[in-house]
């Protein structure tokens, strides 16, 4: 083995690291502007992402398990022992994909299957931005699991709004049409840290998409702790994916399903209380057992429940949340 100093790769350049030099110092010496503040591993201003190579553990101290799993690290305290390739956060390339199937289901939800031109490195529960050929863009969470569905297969749940720019188009689109995507983004996903911890998944509407991905991902990864999937719609007849969920629960003893609707109607096995009421009744008993909570869907539910669970004693680090913000009114492809 030679004792050559490790190299740092960034934006196509290779930099020889001096002994004891941090990634931040090496990049700055090259004239690369990296945001930084405390330079002591505390403020996280200088967070970057490792593309390949091994990170010293102290460079990830204080980061959430999700950020660690994504290879995020603090450049100011990162002194690599071996070769390392790094990138700034937010550099996302576009990828082309083909629409394989659009299936209508209950609750005006479209189950969209895409095949990407090359495998996409994602975690179930993250989201992508879907771009129509004319450039119209909308974010959707990923319900598929690479290990179960294949690395180039993406499943999205799209609520079909009457007059919706993207959802209206998807409802009538032919199979084989090409689209593009950006991503994946987001930190709301399962990390196999404590396989015996209870998991509570709470979502409204198509918030079920990321939760379905997270639940299947956890189960496929051998999660042993109890998993409670609490999902809801305004009306019981708008609940979707119920057969698939029932099959999944039949296969896994540690998965419990609770469906909620404010208008229960004739439905059986549907709880008529609001999701946050049910969640707050169940969650606190599991705080001391390392409960992890995943919240997805309407911002009022997600942000409200996040605060209520925190005030009830849950650590913010144990709550993974993805609030679905409504799109700005569509004024054409150039709308943001």
């Amino acid at each position: 083995m030679s004792h050559a100093s490790p190299t740092l790769r960034f934006a196509g350049e290779t930099i020889a690291l001096e002994r004891g030099q941090t990634v931040l110092e090496a990049l700055e010496a090259r004239g690369v502007a990296v945001p930084s503040s405390c330079r002591a591993g505390a403020c996280q201003s200088c967070t970057m992402r490792a593309v390949s190579g091994e990170l010293p553990s102290e460079s990830q101290a204080g980061l959430s398990p999700a950020k660690r799993a994504l290879g995020h690290f603090l450049a100011c305290v990162c002194r690599p022992a071996g070769d390392l390739e790094v990138a700034s956060l937010g550099d996302a390339a576009e990828l082309s994909a083909t629409i394989v199937e659009v299936r209508r289901t209950s609750g005006a939800v479209l189950l969209v299957r895409l095949r990407t031109a090359s495998p996409l490195d994602y975690r179930p529960g993250q989201f992508i931005t879907l771009l129509r050929p004319d450039g119209l863009a909308r974010p959707y969470s990923i319900a598929s699991v690479p290990a179960l569905d294949g690395p180039s297969e993406l499943h999205l749940h799209v609520r079909h709004y009457p007059g919706g720019a993207m959802s209206g188009w998807l409802a009538g689109v032919r199979e084989g049409v090409e689209v593009s995507l950006r991503g994946p983004f987001g930190e709301c996903f399962y990390v196999a840290e404590d396989r015996d911890a209870p998991l509570l998944l709470v979502g409204s509407g198509t918030g079920l998409a990321p939760l379905y991905g997270i639940a299947r991902d956890a189960l496929a990864g051998g999660h042993r702790g109890p998993i409670t999937l609490l999902y809801g719609a305004r009306r019981a007849e708008d609940l979707y994916l119920r057969e698939e969920l029932a099959l999944l629960a039949a296969e896994h003893d540690n998965l419990e399903l609770i469906a909620s609707a404010l208008e229960v109607g004739e439905a059986v096995d549907v709880d008529g209380r609001a999701l946050d009421v049910i969640a707050l009744e169940r969650a606190p008993a599991d705080f001391s057992r390392g409960l992890r909570v995943f919240l997805c869907g309407a911002p009022a539910l997600v942000n409200g429940l996040r605060r209520q669970l925190f005030m009830a004693g849950a650590s913010m680090r144990s709550i993974f949340a993805d609030a679905f913000l409504p799109s700005a009114p569509a004024t054409g492809p150039s709308s943001v």
């Binding site: 503040s37 405390c38 330079r39 002591a40 591993g41 505390a42 403020c43 996280q44 911002p299 942000n303 996040r306 605060r307 925190f310 913010m316």
Partner: peptide
């Protein structure tokens, strides 16, 4: 404010500062 992450980050900065930790 609903941005609890942003608020916690600021408060972490404050606690770090008043306890004599690294800060600017």
């Amino acid at each position: 404010d609903v941005d609890m992450d942003g608020q916690m980050a600021k408060q972490k900065g404050f606690l770090t500062m008043v306890t004599g930790g690294p800060n600017n």
